[in-house]
Amino acid sequence: MLLIHCPYCNAERPEVEFAYAGEAHIARPTDPSQLDDDQWRDHLYIRSNPRGLHYERWRHIHGCGRFFNAARDTLSDKFVTTYKASLPRPQIVQSEDTP
């Protein structure tokens, strides 16, 4: 069971308190009607699915209830960092043996 740092509680809590919520930094368009069909399809369904660093959303659902963002390495399953939902994507320097 992983430990996940909740940026709102500012504490490491066990994974069972959390729920995964998909890729991060995909903002809902302010006016979806302005998007053509392909753009809307991409918004709905196209995800990066990287090997390595992945920016993703989690919710501390059985804790403070907040959605937040995390950078996690999909190879090692390790969390690199977590940050509040409103914050921009942090710049992360990857070590050499991760892509």
Partner: peptide, 8 residues
């Protein structure tokens, strides 16, 4: 609902 309210 919480998802939309908190993040959008």
């Amino acid at each position: 609902m919480e998802d939309y309210l908190q993040t959008e």
